[in-house]
Design a protein around this nucleic acid. Structure first.
Length: 366
DNA sequence: AATTCGTGGAA
DNA sequence: TTTCCAAGAAT
């Protein structure tokens, strides 16, 4: 096939996909209505893209609504405290995103509240990698950019029947994505590819009968498009054990629990947490409690992270809820947090589970 | 280049 | 139940 017919085929793919997108694209909170007078707000595009990194649309929706209601502009977000942003991000995972989000907002606010309008300029901001920079450039600024996420990888691998295993196939896939990306409507095209991957060209049981690109798809022609893209086998997840410590005090009828702030980098970095024995440091926990006493187990919490599974034992001090100031204070930095407002502490899911266990265990002693 | 970063929903 | 995996980035 010569170069000119390649170009013609690519153009047809883009046209077919954009026509499908106009009719069947998803309606999402961070998208503007088709044909809207104003283009999308770069702040909302950027915020949604960061939230959507390795995260499902369903999980993002409520966080996007909460963030945009509380911080309607990038300047408003830039003025927020890190504590508030981290707490608002709690439960969404990959917490480095929240730290980078705030750092990025502050950089953008410092340059007048305007995001760079080129892929290269965006790529230099914290938390924007190759994908996000391309996506924001295309969606918010209408730039032609080759936007490659996991959806696009799957669609392109099937479209061209690329059976080289990932990640080695990435350069080939990028070439294919580049070849089909149009000069006009690059933002719509990127979102169309992602919608297609999310609703039609799904990992398992792709719905080729509904696909606007079926006639152009080499993967479909091969008879088993679901085989693509080929991925390397996954490693087994090691199991780790650790302990977290529930320390309460009571004063004037109000109950507090002792919370710490985790180090800025590493697991759950920068998040509020229960004190623990150091389980996150590459092995089973072995550290001492932040308070001497006769610790007992109140139960266990199972939690699966990306690269290991954790069995966390929750340790309590039975009958020592009343703690006079200065008498048996936990060692190290931390803060007493009202138990009845624990949902506002912004605990990541692991510790939210542990807290639920603690409160359930005291209602129903074992 | 391979690891290290969460979480919850679907099949 | 287990497995897979989602609009990836940083190092």
């Amino acid at each position: 096939m010569d170069a000119s017919s390649d170009t013609a085929a690519s153009s047809r793919i883009a046209q077919d996909l954009l026509a499908w997108y106009d009719a069947h694209g998803r309606t999402l909170p961070w998208r503007v209505a088709p044909g809207a007078a104003a283009g999308p707000d770069p702040y909302r595009v950027w915020l949604s893209e960061v939230m959507l990194q390795q995260t499902t649309v369903a999980a993002v929706k409520s966080y996007f609504a909460a963030f945009t209601a509380r911080w309607p502009t990038v300047e408003a977000l830039a003025a927020a405290s890190e504590e508030d942003v981290m707490a608002a991000w709690a439960g969404l995972g990959y917490y480095a995103r929240a730290r980078n989000l705030l750092a990025c907002a502050r950089e953008v606010a410092a340059r007048g509240g305007r995001f760079p309008d080129t892929e290269e300029g965006l790529r230099a901001l914290p938390g924007l990698g190759a994908y996000t920079a391309a996506a924001v450039a295309a969606i918010a600024f209408g730039r032609r950019a080759v936007v490659v996420d996991a959806n696009v990888e799957r669609v392109v691998a099937r479209l061209f029947a690329i059976d080289t295993p990932l990640p080695a196939a990435r350069p080939l896939i990028r070439e294919g994505a580049d070849a089909v990306t149009p000069d006009e409507r690059a933002g719509d095209f990127a979102q169309a590819m992602m919608d297609l991957g999310a609703t039609i060209c799904t990992p398992r049981a792709p719905r080729c009968l509904l696909c606007p690109l079926a006639a152009s798809c080499a993967g479909r022609a091969s008879g088993e498009p679901e085989r693509l893209p080929v991925k390397a086998a996954k490693k087994a997840k090691p199991a780790r054990r650790g302990r977290a410590f529930w320390i309460e005090r009571e004063r004037g009828g109000a109950r507090d629990v002792w919370l710490v702030r985790r180090p800025g980098k590493g697991m759950l970095g920068g998040m509020r947490a229960l004190p623990d024995d150091g389980w996150s440091a590459r092995a089973d926990g072995s550290g001492d409690p932040p308070l001497a006493g006769s610790w007992e187990s109140a139960g266990r919490v199972s939690h699966v992270f990306t690269h290991f599974a954790l069995e966390l034992e929750l340790a309590v001090l039975p009958g020592e809820r009343t703690r006079a100031p200065g008498q048996g204070e936990p060692s190290g930095p931390g803060e007493w947090w009202p138990v009845d407002r624990l949902d506002e502490a912004g605990l990541p899911t692991l510790f939210a589970k542990a807290a639920r266990l603690a409160l359930a265990a005291e209602r129903e002693p074992a």
